[in-house]
């Protein structure tokens, strides 16, 4: 087990290091999310109460679109020089390779989110730090769901010419249950309303979603990678 996580960590560290050097996906995802937040701020009145009601949804829409730029690179960054073949032929178990890729996606997505949230707070006049623990839980669980499903579909579409188009088409519908939970919890956290009772169901949905899709992806990735 220690070996498994050590190999996963080596893959994740390599992906983060590579992305940090080129900043290809980070720069595009970050600028995209800031531009979309800016454009929406012109469309809606930042001071209006109604804006605060759909703030969580708006934020997650931006994260989803910007996030697809990050997860799309997860396996496609292995295409130059046929590095994916070398990784598959190596002693790294496919599940460890997948977990490393998902973890690298998670870190990169969190960077985008942590940059976007303060910008969102300024553009929409929202005090976003009033329930930091709940916001962190919603961000963490949903970002992990995006990373896991995104990495699996990135592996599945890596050899397709239209992968940039295919990946969002596969990813977004699969993420709907997690997104519903994320939007509800984030909206409540941003509005500084208590999260209790029926709202806790969404937390359970997010946890269950992460567990189910992480297990499913780890089981399927061997089949997806070896053709």
């Amino acid at each position: 087990m220690i070996r498994f996580f050590r190999l996963s960590f080596a893959i994740a560290a390599k992906d983060i290091q590579s992305e940090w050097r080129t900043k290809e996906a980070l720069n595009s995802a970050c600028s995209f999310s800031i531009v979309v937040l800016l454009m929406f701020s012109f469309a809606f009145d930042p001071g209006a109460e109604s804006t605060k009601e759909f703030a969580g949804g708006l934020l997650w829409l931006v994260f989803m679109f910007a996030g697809s730029l990050i997860v799309n690179r997860s396996f496609s960054r292995e295409l130059p020089n046929d590095c994916l073949d070398v990784l598959i032929a190596s002693p790294v178990p496919p599940a460890a390779l997948f977990l490393g890729k998902a973890f690298a996606c998670f870190v990169l997505l969190m960077i985008i989110e942590l940059i976007s949230i303060p910008v969102f707070g300024i553009f929409y006049n929202i005090t976003w730090w009033r329930q930091p623990a709940w916001l962190a839980v919603a961000l963490g669980l949903t970002t992990w769901a995006m990373s896991v499903i995104g990495s699996l579909f990135s592996a599945l579409t890596v050899n397709l010419r239209l992968r940039e188009l295919m990946l969002p088409m596969l990813l977004y519908p699969m993420l709907i249950p997690a997104l519903m939970g994320a939007i509800r919890l984030t909206s409540l956290a941003l509005a500084n309303e208590p999260i209790a009772g029926e709202d806790l169901v969404w937390l359970k949905v997010l946890v269950a979603f992460d567990i189910i899709f992480t297990s499913l992806s780890l089981a399927l990735v061997d089949f997806v990678l070896v053709r």
């Binding site: 290091q17 590579s18 050097r21 020089n81 590095c83 073949d85 070398v86 032929a89």
Partner: peptide, 17 residues
């Protein structure tokens, strides 16, 4: 697998590293 090595048609190294 730990004792095998594969060299395919391409070099399999990371340009950014």
């Amino acid at each position: 697998r730990r004792r095998t090595a594969y060299l395919g048609h391409n070099i399999g190294i990371y340009d950014e590293l």
